[in-house]
Amino acid sequence: MSHRDASGEILAGFIAPHPPHLVYGENPPQNKPQSQGGWENLRWAYQHCRDKIKALKPDVILVHSPHWQTVVGHHFLDVPKLKGLSVDPIFPHLFQYDFELDVDTELAEACYEEALEEGLAAKKMVNPNFRVDYGTITSLHMLNPDWDIPVVGISANNSPYYHTHDYAQDQMIKLGQATRRAIEKTGRRAILAASNTLSHLHFDREPAIPEDMSQEHIMSHEQYLWDMRFIELIRQGKLDEMMDILPEFMEKTFAEVKAGSLVWMLSAMNFPKIPAQIHGYGTVIGTGNVVAEWDLDKARREGTLTEEAMVHA
């Protein structure tokens, strides 16, 4: 981590969906179940991200996961090394993953302190026996299967499911701001990952062969249209418009962005009104998933990341 003397910065942010099917389809050595493939459009999309991340040489990847749900505050993984077997309680036949990850605890603690500074409830997760959730692991594996970059895992506080949309998203905006300050103060070159699907209504049956792609399709045409509406807006860098439709998107499609991961990430990046690069879109058991990237490093170099382009109205 040779860049820590300089002021830290966020290099890029990714929407990094976490269906365990993507790990299952890849057959990595860490995962016990074996597949014949499947969901290639999303897995190949992730391949672009992997190459990009390697080239950026980040110090850390921060991931916000809807499947680490907390009710009292925002929690941060804060154990230097976490390892174990993570079995997905919903899809155990697809995901039994031996994980071993290094946590950037200095940054995790800085995030925690800055969250408190924002007036948020926050906690450090210091229990060494903690089983890391499959959402965190899937997003991190798909972005960096070598696991050679330290991570910070952030829980999804359940406030979006208890409070009004405005209050809940305000919490995520503050969490993003806290995260950004922590990155800057600790001098980290950071990648952010919002671990969420888009439309999230799904089938409650799966084919006999889960990776039978002849059976895979979006749950409904309405979901597809909503996903495309969302994607088109981020492709054009129209984040204000995207934020305006977000409540309806959540309501109509049960979109997992409700968990706050996306708004956390965009807030940390100062809501950059630059086009997101869409690496791929695909469905998993009926849900809509996009792998998308905001390349802040490139935008800085090209001079398109102006002050006007960064403040959410």
Binding site: W68, Q69, T70, V71, V72, H75, K123, M125, V126, N127, N129, F130, R131, D133, S155
Partner: peptide, 13 residues
């Protein structure tokens, strides 16, 4: 095995 609650992890195992 050992289970740690996702939210109440500070309470123990």
């Amino acid at each position: 095995g050992v289970h740690v609650d996702g939210n109440w992890h500070a309470m123990g195992d």
